[in-house]
Each structure stands twice: as structure tokens, then as C-alpha cells.
């Protein structure tokens, strides 16, 4: 018998067996145990993730305050969102946040990880220090930074910068300064996790490659360019798309720091969704909120697909 014939015969046997026997076979092979084990997570995910997602998709086409009967309104919610004068501003601001986060927030963890990988002693300590901000609850860190960002001459940052003749800067109280201030705080809060990912990837780069590069006369920058970065390419592409997805959904910083101000300079898409659902209208605008959420989800899904298709070749 050829080895390849076996699975074919098994499949034919199974298809010929009657349903109760197939059930018995499934039961004997531990199917029920597996299902029972998976049941809690299926129920929890179904109840608290998939069901709300499905409900939100339905609500995007309804007018509802979750108390009275919902009415179908077709595409009205989408029309309302797309004609909202704040929508282009929120779109622009979210893009600006993502861009700044890319410029400031993407290279900093990478540089930090590369430098830390070069340090032989105390690497553990540096890792802990880099990761520490991630451990601090986000609301606490925002309140802390808000205190630092006091626009008065006596504010923490302004006092420190004043010693070297800079400032005082308005930080959150100016439409040009507000968004970079938010990105700076967000980078501080989030960089640690990315540093750890990069560091793990860097440590896995074979030492022989660096030795070979050194034998070829490569300095530190050429080693980074020709050995480190190519080896990190796969991780970099993943962290990049994760960062883009996260920044497109930025909410915490604008909500807690500025509430979208001054004069809508930090109003983002997520903040707009929140305002529709829980802000000015006392929770009555769930339709537009879910419509905008749906649009954002579809956009990010399409963007991710295109990204992975484009970068499939590059990351290998």
C-alpha cells in the first residue's frame, strides 16, 4: 500500500459511517471534553466580544437610545457622520497623531533597544526602567504628565527648560503644541513594551553575524544597518502595523489631557465616537457612534490587508 492512500481510505470510511457512529467516534476521541473545555471561553468571547460587535453593526443602521424601540434608518447615521463638520478635522487630527507617533514613537524604542543590546552589564536594569512606564496605570500617567505640562512659568517642564533658557511653552494650551505634547506622553507610556519586543528579537540575532561583520571591518553603524535592521525586518513590520492601528484608535490621551481641545486641535475619531455615544447628547446618539466605529473598523481591516500584501515579500 502506498502511504498516500491511507488518508483517502480513512476519509471514505468516515463518510460512509452513519451519523450516530460518527458522533460516538467524536465522543470517544475526546470531542466532548474539548468542547466543554472551550465552552467557557466561547461563551465569554461570544457574550462580551462577538455579540456586542454584531449588535453594534446592527445599531449603525438604527436610531436607538437603548431604552425605547429602535427604528431602522438605513444609511442616515453614516450620512450624519460624513456631513459632520468635525469629521474632517477628527480625521486630520488622527492622521497627524499617527504621523507624529510614527516619527517620534517608532524610532525611539528601536534606538533604545539597539543601545540596550550593546550594553552587556545592567541590561536587565535598563529593561526594567524602559518597561516601568507601561506598568503605571494610564490614567495615573496622564494626570502626572498633565501636572508636568502646566503652562505657567512655574510648571515642571517650563521650570526645567527655563534653566537652559527655553520657554515657557504653552504645552496643552495651544493648538500647535497640544498634539505633539500628547504624542510625547503616549510615547513615554508605550515605548517600553516595544523596546522589550525589539530587545528579544535583537538578542536572537546570531553573534557570528556581528563577528563576521567586524572581521570585514564594519563599525557600529554599519553593523546596525547591515545586520541588525535586516534581521529585525519582520518584527519591525509587525510593530509598525500594530502602532498604526493603535494610533488610529487613540482616545485616552486626547480625552484625559485636552478633551479634544483647544478648539478641536486634538479631536480624534475615537473621541468623536465617544462624544456621539456618551458626550453632548447624553447617550442618545448610539447610531452615529456605531456607524463611525464600523467605518473605522472597515478602514483598518482594508488598510491591514493592503499593508500585509505589500510587505509580504519585504519581511522575508
Amino acid at each position: 500500500m502506498k502511504r498516500s492512500e491511507q488518508p483517502v481510505r480513512d476519509a471514505a470510511t468516515v463518510s460512509q459511517t452513519r451519523l450516530p457512529e460518527r458522533f460516538k467516534l467524536w465522543f470517544r476521541k475526546g470531542g466532548l471534553s474539548a468542547l466543554l473545555f472551550a465552552l467557557p471561553i466561547i461563551v465569554v468571547f461570544g457574550g462580551f466580544s462577538w455579540w456586542p460587535i454584531l449588535r453594534a453593526m446592527v445599531m449603525a443602521f438604527q436610531d436607538t437610545n437603548l431604552i425605547g424601540d429602535a427604528t431602522w434608518v438605513g444609511l442616515d447615521n453614516f450620512r450624519w457622520v460624513l456631513t459632520d463638520p468635525d469629521f474632517p478635522k477628527a480625521l486630520r487630527n488622527t492622521g497627524y497623531f499617527a504621523l507624529l507617533a510614527l516619527i517620534i514613537g517608532f524610532p525611539i524604542p528601536l534606538i533604545g533597544a539597539v543601545l540596550m543590546s550593546e550594553v552587556k552589564k545592567l541590561r536587565g536594569l535598563f529593561s526594567v526602567l524602559a518597561y516601568l512606564p507601561v506598568v503605571i496605570p494610564p490614567v495615573v500617567s496622564v494626570l502626572l504628565w498633565k501636572f508636568f505640562y502646566d503652562g505657567a512659568r512655574t510648571g515642571v517642564f517650563n521650570t526645567l527648560l527655563g534653566h537652559i533658557g527655553l520657554g515657557p511653552f504653552p504645552w496643552l494650551n495651544d493648538k500647535h503644541w497640544a498634539m505633539p505634547s500628547l504624542v510625547l506622553a503616549a510615547t513615554w507610556a508605550g515605548a517600553g513594551a516595544t523596546v522589550i519586543i525589539y530587545l528579544a528579537a535583537l538578542i536572537s540575532v546570531p553573534a557570528e553575524l556581528y563577528e563576521a561583520a567586524e572581521l570585514d571591518g564594519a563599525g557600529i553603524w554599519r553593523k546596525i544597518w547591515h545586520v541588525t535592521l535586516p534581521k529585525l525586518r519582520g518584527v519591525l513590520f509587525i510593530t509598525l502595523i500594530l502602532q498604526i492601528i493603535a494610533t488610529a484608535q487613540v482616545f485616552l490621551e486626547p480625552y484625559l489631557f485636552t478633551g479634544g481641545g483647544p478648539n478641536k486641535a486634538t479631536l480624534t475619531i475615537l473621541l468623536m465616537i465617544y462624544n456621539y455615544a456618551f458626550g453632548a447628547s447624553l447617550g442618545a446618539d448610539y447610531g452615529p457612534a456605531t456607524a463611525l466605529s464600523l467605518m473605522l473598523a472597515v478602514f483598518l481591516a482594508i488598510f491591514s490587508l493592503i499593508y500585509f500584501r505589500l510587505t509580504r515579500g519585504w519581511s522575508q
Binding site: K175, P262, N263, K264, N275
Partner: peptide, 18 residues
Amino acid sequence: TQDVYAALDPVVQAVLTD
């Protein structure tokens, strides 16, 4: 009421920051 106030917030912020 709250929507009127929400529309005015950015105006006050603009006057105080620009």
C-alpha cells in the same frame, strides 16, 4: 442644551489660546 454648549466650547478655547 448640551449640544449648544458643546458647540461653544471650542470658541471659548480658541479665544483663550489663540
